[in-house]
Nucleic acid binder design. Structure first.
Lengths: 210, 210
DNA sequence: GTCTATACCTGGATAGAC
DNA sequence: GTCTATCCAGGTATAGAC
């Protein structure tokens, strides 16, 4: 890890804990173990460190067609088919994986926290935050459920309603337990109950026998 | 409105737009139309202004047993009975009222925005924010659905799952459309669909005929 | 590429006249 | 209770030696 990378990394940690304005260049330099003035050999300004972090997140998110847990490169109908093979139990596991990915991935979780705090201070982070956590997930899952219904894996229903029903509890629990890692078990138990109910309502058991 | 109240009011507006640290005492004084030094005749510090706002919110929230739209003073089973009389349509109206209350009430919406940004900077606001927007709503609605199931207004189901299913879309849509007031119609349309589906799943139509 | 030293500014807060 | 004047701390950023 180069010094430049270490600066960005420590900055993200501090930004996610104290906010952008609550973090001084000296705080970052201290965390890295250099003098604040030395930091300007790597970045021209504090703002540039912030921008670099945002850019890094954008790249990670476009590289990773994650969204719902699958590697990129596959077509939506291929993904839908893969999901369709899932039993209710493994759909539950999947939701937990998504939940824990956002909660535990060092970069993502720190970025989420920072973005939540800073979304109204810069138009750029406002856009990135909303795109990733509020819009793309819903759009993507809507298309996925639409496809899965078409293929007969789920009962016929409004796919957008399904996407919102599936995603909003995950979103809520992430928001709620992001600040309380020790309550992770509680969150997972609640999530489990929600997904079980979701499956009870929408999942087409019969399709599994064909 | 006294000068002291105007200071707190303008401060809340600025805090909700730029954050606590992003707002200077001079910014607040300018908005009120006095010099920054004069402000210290009303508050001993910037922090005290912030604390006053938090306290005000706490008082509003305890005075108003709002939570789901009913005036305080009635017992839970009385409330449940009142809700039970609702048709699916009026339950939908109710959810919109809750949504619009949080979104449109000047004080609440500014406070929400500020709290979202500042939750990790002061333990006190962390507590208040989570209590109001993440915990109390769920706890309260869980008890309410439990009662309504007992009275036969809803099908038998896990009341906590119902509360989460009912509240998390509202929470998500609030988070999403808080920054985009011009998209209010979109949000209401989505909310309507969610509540209709919720009623389709859980509401006991037969009970309405008794 | 790191250091010391420093310039420059803004922000929070106080003193004291009116 | 508002003003002017002022203090002091801390923050961003630059210059120049090593």
């Amino acid at each position: 890890m180069t010094t430049k990378e270490r600066i960005a990394d420590e900055a993200l940690t501090l930004f996610s804990e104290r906010g952008y304005q609550g973090t001084s260049v000296k705080n970052i330099a201290d965390a890295v173990g250099i003098r604040d003035s030395s930091l300007y050999k790597h970045f021209t300004s504090k703002k540039e460190i912030f921008d670099t972090i945002v850019k890094e997140m954008q790249e990670r998110m476009s590289g990773l067609t994650f969204r719902v847990g699958l590697p990129s490169g596959e077509s939506r109908s291929a993904e839908a088919a893969a999901y369709g093979e899932l039993t209710a139990d493994s759909l539950c596991d999947l939701s937990k994986q998504i939940f824990l990915f956002y909660l535990k991935d060092d970069f993502i979780s720190r970025f989420w926290r920072m973005a939540m705090m800073e979304q109204y201070h810069s138009p750029e982070i406002y856009g990135v935050y909303r795109k990733i956590f509020l819009e793309e997930s819903i759009v993507y899952q809507t298309e996925l459920f639409r496809e899965m219904i078409r293929l007969g894996y789920f009962h016929s229903a409004d796919p957008e309603v399904m996407a919102i029903s599936f995603y909003t509890p995950i979103f809520f629990l992430l928001t709620k337990y992001m600040g309380e890692p020790e309550e992770e078990e509680t969150a997972l138990r609640l999530l489990e109950k929600q997904v079980a109910e979701f499956c009870r309502i929408y999942h087409n058991q019969k399709r599994l026998d064909t």
